[in-house]
Amino acid sequence: MATSTVSSIPLSLNDRLVAGISALLIGAFLVFGAGLANSAVLHDTAHDTRHSYGFPCH
């Protein structure tokens, strides 16, 4: 009940949005790096992961 807690005591609406948008940005960065980034080293390291998750790959 993250958000119900959130709305009742610890996180104000503002904090909730800050946390949510930070999570979206960091998450998108990680998924992009592992799944989409056009780098040979990242590609080769994440190769099997990219195929298993169905990321568009080479």
């Binding site: 993250a2 958000t3 959130v6 909730r16 949005l17 946390a19 949510g20 948008i21 930070s22 999570a23 979206l24 940005l25 960091i26 998450g27 998108a28 960065f29 990680l30 998924v31 992009f32 790096g33 592992a34 799944g35």
Partner: peptide, 13 residues
């Protein structure tokens, strides 16, 4: 971790 943060981010927003 990336997908989990995205899911949490959507939930929070």
């Amino acid at each position: 971790a990336g997908f989990s943060l995205l899911l949490a981010g959507v939930s929070l927003v």
